[in-house]
Simulated assay, not measured.
Amino acid sequence: MTFLRRLLVTLFAVCITGCVQHLDPQPHGARNFVPWTNEPVPYRLSPGDTLAIQYTLNPELNENELSIAPDGTITAPLLGTIMAAGLSVATLKSNMQQRYVAYLRQPEFDIVVRSYVGAQIYVGGEVKTQGVYPLKGVMDAMQAVVTAGGPIDSAKLSQAVLIRHRADGRPMMRTIDLRHYMNTADMSDHVMLQPGDLVFVPKTAIASFDIFIDQYLDKAIPFNKTLNYNMGSSVFY
């Protein structure tokens, strides 16, 4: 079973079993998910992101605009080609420092992200325009739905689903009552998004599992594999 199919089966289970604020992994529905936490998730670099590398003791090596190539690599001074995509800034710096030992006595430098081309979110389900959207600045789950054209008549905003990967790559899932947030501005449902988040708005009623698969799997979900979800990764097995 592909990750997309497993994800959609899990979302279906969420829709038919009721709304809970934090979903713990259960054998029948969410066994691939871990308990939700609000800890910040380090941004993982993506192709197209632009970096600056500033060397403390070797300013002649400074790079002010270093783009991550489509294959995920950068060309760093003295080191040549090195993989950057999929890594946090801290991990990339650690990898470079280990390699710089062969060239520099004191490899002291900072890495600054100039632009976050890969900072994206996915909005799907009962919205007007499903798809991948850039995460520009601060955005909450309701703003993401609005960015996708807003909910359609069949949307069940009270059980919107948010999926996020925590720092170790494992997926987390929770539901958000966007209807309650719209009506009351209750901050408990004011959830700020992070790069790679998936927001899914289910239908108000799903007549059968077959209809769900037909509508959401075979016809409706244009899931973009460029989103930072590492499709098919072993963490989902």
Rank of each mutant, 00 (worst) to 15 (best):
G86N: 03
M172W: 04
Y43W: 09
P40N: 09
A141C: 08
G86C: 03
V123L: 06
E63A: 15
F223A: 03
F109K: 06
Y43I: 13
I163S: 02
L198F: 07
T56L: 15
P25C: 11
L227R: 04
M1Y: 12
I176K: 07
P222I: 03
G18A: 09
A144E: 06
V9R: 09
S88P: 02
Y122V: 13
R174M: 14
T81G: 00
W36H: 08
V127C: 07
Y229G: 02
G118F: 07
I74T: 03
L4E: 09
A207W: 00
G131K: 03
L157Y: 04
I213A: 07
L193M: 14
H28F: 15
M231I: 12
T50R: 15
V34Q: 11
P40G: 10
G118N: 08
G125D: 04
D218P: 00
G118K: 04
T17H: 10
F109T: 04
P195M: 06
P25Q: 08
E39V: 13
M187P: 02
N38K: 08
Y133P: 04
P27Q: 09
V127I: 14
Q21H: 12
A141D: 02
Y122G: 12
N230G: 08
T56P: 00
D153Q: 07
L87V: 00
D218L: 00
A185R: 14
G169V: 07
K93I: 04
E39W: 03
I53R: 01
N38C: 06
M139R: 07
I213T: 03
L162P: 03
C19I: 05
P59G: 05
I53H: 03
S46E: 08
Q54M: 12
P222C: 01
S46R: 12
V235N: 05
P70W: 07
I152N: 01
G149Y: 00
I111E: 06
P70M: 09
V123I: 14
F3V: 08
Q159H: 05
Q215C: 00
I163V: 14
F200L: 12
P35S: 14
V34W: 10
R105Y: 06
A13L: 08
I206S: 10
Y122M: 13
A13M: 11
